[in-house]
Design a protein around this nucleic acid. Structure first.
Lengths: 347, 347
DNA sequence: TGACTCTCTGCAATCGATTGCAGAAGATAT
DNA sequence: ATATCTTCTGCAATCGATTGCAGAGAGTCA
């Protein structure tokens, strides 16, 4: 009884292997393998399969994914590389990625690249050693060496939130142009005619694309364009405040379309400093619908980029590339959505 | 030349195995293995080792972590299970976990449990099939069945953000009592004598512990206690606003210590509705230092819980449990920190 | 020279699951 | 009864890295 109890404890914490299950069920291990795998279950006689399944359950058998992967050459692991996991933008993306992968039977292996490029390369190499089936990168830059390495290795790779300038890899990005059209249209529909643009850094793709989208939207409405644009030096609130100060001192605008939410919050500060009320004196629209901007005062009207959906789409795109080799790189551009809160009103 | 080019391309995308490297270097594969592994490098003659390393590099050899893990019984993978990756509280925790694990040579395998318990059990089972070396759970509840399963399987497990009531597993949690002491002390130091508590739901451990901490802190200062406490029905801004309304209508308080930041933001709304200015008429302190509360108006004074550090500590604790089997469960309680912003002032 | 010790290297088994192939058994048709 | 077809099962090799053990060679000492 004592030994029997000890043996049961051991069996519980160290699962039996397939050979042990096969022995106990009185079959060969290849038959046990086929019976326990839903894809091959039909190759085994029903009564035999049931006996094997029950024996495995009773013995606490647990498949070893490592061993299976070694044989099949497929891990069902995906490396997910982010620039900064703690950045609030990436939480929703990451959840979309994880859930999209899990739904297809894949698991997400997380890597935080940090600001330095050498970290990213080392992380990628470690992911490759783990024989990940594919990679999702949220870290791509122009002519990205990491992306080049992944493509050379023949590893299915999808970019999210940023695209590669050459279309070498599939990507899921937001429609910067359409987002700015939404912002301008909303302000114009409220009667605003003098609209300024608080731009992002112009050496970052979103900064340049959103500025271009703003100008095109103004032109489409026959409104003054181009002049009332000031670019911030960084996507931070402080830089936004400084640029908004300049915008407000040089132009008599009744509304501001900002290139992202932090810049918009900086514009809040600049307006307050000039005794201007938001939205009574100046209406402000942000971009991204970053978590918690509905809680600032006044709640920010903004252009929502559904980051969860982007993550899910990136996952689906990657699974397709893994399971259908040779498919051409694809670019998915997500549609932005206007979210009206308290920072805009009729002029 | 054509075939030679094709062969080179194939070698680049499908790395050679250890046998191929050993053949090219003129040694046995066991010698190649020892030479390429820093832990056994000293067992190989220096000139031989250099030749092997150079051959491996030239051939684009990449170790197969799967095969190694099958042999060694160690994956250096850690399952990290969160209730909701998109929740802003978990981003910083997750980054701490990932960076802490990476520093010790481990990788984080991400799982989003969602609200339902059955998902968590299935996810854990999948992680077990992957033979993770350990688990970090941010999902623990009282008498958690998932934790029970992990412990029965003998898998090293650490809880983060929530602890197990029985101390069955190591945990990293914040000091709810000390946090409330900091809030009360800060308000008292500003001259406040009539301080109210905007509590969290009392069936949630943080709600109850922070209320108890508040009362103890008031008593320690000989101030009125216990009466000016109203519990919100949930940790949301709306519930916080309703509870603050009740608190302000029943008690003449000059300050409010809230059980978390969202409740505090609800109190902002309640004060505004009553024509009370924050902080001139009522000072307010939050709890957690959630992202962006420095951007609301007025910027929230709060008790900071360093979620990144919690994640790092959980990672270190787990690595220790993996590498030192039999170590006793440990509980790390992180020290809160007062962050003074614009929502409190002298009475 | 012989014995002993140390260093280096190769051998071969192992880890656990999968799967192409061959053979056996049973069912069906002629 | 024989031939053919279908279903089921077992065999054995494979995936790639690691490592305990044994043997060979070189150096040292008596």
């Amino acid at each position: 009884m004592f030994l029997s109890g000890l043996a049961m404890t051991d069996l519980r914490s160290v699962p039996p292997n397939l050979q042990a299950v096969a022995d106990a069920a009185g079959v060969h291990r290849s038959t046990a393998s086929r019976a326990l795998n839903p894809a091959t279950r039909r190759l085994v006689a029903e009564d035999v399969a049931l006996r094997i399944v029950e024996t495995a359950r009773r013995m606490g058998y647990r498949r070893d994914a490592l061993a299976a992967s070694l044989r099949t050459g497929r891990t069902r692991l995906v490396g997910v590389v982010l620039p900064d996991i703690a950045n609030p933008v990436f939480g929703p993306i990451l959840r979309g990625v994880e859930c999209g992968l899990a739904a297809a039977g894949y698991s997400a292996l997380l890597a935080n690249a940090g600001p330095s490029g050498e970290d990213a390369m080392r992380l990628i190499e470690e992911l490759m050693e783990r024989r990940v089936d594919g990679l999702i990168l949220a870290t791509a830059r122009h002519d990205d060496p990491v992306l080049t390495a992944c493509l050379e290795a023949g590893t299915p790779t999808v970019l999210v939130n940023r695209a590669d300038a050459h279309g070498r890899a599939s990507a899921v990005v937001s429609d910067d142009h359409a987002g700015m059209v939404l912002a301008v249209d909303h302000l114009a529909s409220l009667g605003h005619r003098r609209i300024g643009h608080l731009g992002g850094p112009q050496d970052v793709s979103t900064g340049a694309l959103r500025r271009a989208g703003f100008i095109a939207a103004l032109r489409a409405r026959g409104l003054e364009s181009e002049d009332a644009c000031v670019a911030a030096t960084a996507y931070t609130r402080e830089a936004g405040q400084a640029a908004a100060e300049e915008l407000l001192s040089r132009f008599d605008v009744s509304a501001i379309a900002a290139a992202n939410d932090l810049l918009a919050l900086g514009a809040y500060r600049a307006c307050a400093a000039r005794g201007l009320r938001v939205p009574h004196d100046v209406s402000i629209v942000g971009h991204n619908d970053m978590p918690l901007v509905d809680m600032v005062e006044p709640p920010l009207t903004t252009i929502r980029i559904s980051h969860v959906a982007m993550g899910e789409q990136a996952a689906r795109l990657l699974v397709r590339e893994i399971e259908t080799p040779g498919s051409a790189p694809e670019r998915i551009v997500t549609a932005p959505e206007l979210v009206v809160r308290g920072s805009t009103m009729r002029v």
